[in-house]
Design a protein around this nucleic acid. Structure first.
Lengths: 187, 187
DNA sequence: ACCTTAACGCAAATTTTTAGCGTTAGCCGG
DNA sequence: CCGGCTAACGCTAAAAATTTGCGTTAAGGT
């Protein structure tokens, strides 16, 4: 009976969605460094203390919102072949992540040490790639190693976005994908 | 005369080093989330307002300290051959970055949007690799492409540290290096 | 319908951050 | 070596954010 009860319906859920929506609205208007908890509280009609008690601090709240935004709503597009599936997905991924909101989400997710926000978020990517792999196998294609795809394609993209050391062009992303596919075929 | 004068000697420099040293001391003792500006101010004997005026906010200060700590004091060790040079450097790099203080520094550096802290920090890595490359060429070895080394070796390591999705074993790092070297030889 | 208690709102207390203003001390030309 | 100029600092008060105590509301189970 007296188990740990995490309420998920009714008022609590409504407040969560109110706050999340407010944060997303604010992120469109202003820079992340200018957003404050009292500001979110007023716009969403929720008391500041509630936000502090529930999320701890601003960075945790932002990370929570970012993870929610990154959570995919659908499987990656099926283009009929593994190569084009992978390229389509990666190009869209790079596009989203390198955008202003994408970089903001990345920073928020990585900025929270508590609650494995980063872990959950990269799990989304893993799952998508796993979906592409299974789809390829179903078609009778050779498939690919998801972990190696992350190392060869995803990791460099994220690295350059985070450190801003290189321009992330479409051609570059495409070359990462094609070189990975060649390596798969060769092995 | 009335040029932008950024004073670098005397009092200003002393305060900077005092604050930096205090932050580093605090980071050994406590978690980053518990450190506050007033706390640093008291321990270092500097007024809070000075810290705020000079660094803006806590995350900028932490990023500044992190970059200073990451700044290498010496060139990577010369082991006599490119392969072992690269492996030695990468293993040490992975060791440092995956440690508690390393992850903390990464988070701090990536958490600051202003002043390209992230850029400067990844430049260190680039320079080290460039040093290894030139050293190899001097020896008469084939050398390697620094950008590709970052994509193939450094990026995956950083990715897994940041997202915590996989254990970063020595064997894994070694395999990244050896596969990169094989790829170089084959091309 | 009732009970238990997680989660909220309110408001006071505390802490952190900002801003005004006078003072100290680098750096420069003479 | 001697001022003059001003970047950078210290101090203090005001503003803003965060924490905390306590009463109230409303999920979820019996």
């Amino acid at each position: 009976m007296a188990r740990e009860m995490v309420r998920q319906g009714g008022r609590s859920a409504r407040i969560q969605s109110e706050v999340h929506r407010t944060v997303q609205d604010l992120l469109k208007t202003m820079d992340r460094g200018e957003i404050t908890v009292p500001m979110i509280a007023e716009k969403s009609g929720v008391t500041p203390s509630t936000i502090y008690r529930r999320w701890g601090d601003l960075s945790e709240l932002l990370a929570d919102v970012a993870v929610a935004r990154m959570r995919p709503v659908a499987d990656p597009e099926d283009t009929g072949a593994m190569g084009s599936d992978l390229e389509t997905f990666i190009l869209q991924y790079a596009e989203e992540m390198s955008s202003k909101v994408g970089r903001s989400m990345l920073a928020d997710v990585l900025g929270s040490m508590e609650g494995a926000a980063a872990g959950r978020c990269c799990q989304f990517t893993y799952d998508h790639l796993e979906t592409l792999r299974e789809r390829a196998l179903t078609r009778g294609e050779t498939g690919f190693d998801v972990n190696e795809a992350i190392d060869s394609i995803v990791a460099p993209i994220i690295y350059h976005i985070l450190f801003g050391d290189r321009e992330l062009t479409t051609d570059y992303c495409r070359s990462l994908v094609s070189r990975f596919l060649e390596k798969c075929a060769g092995a």
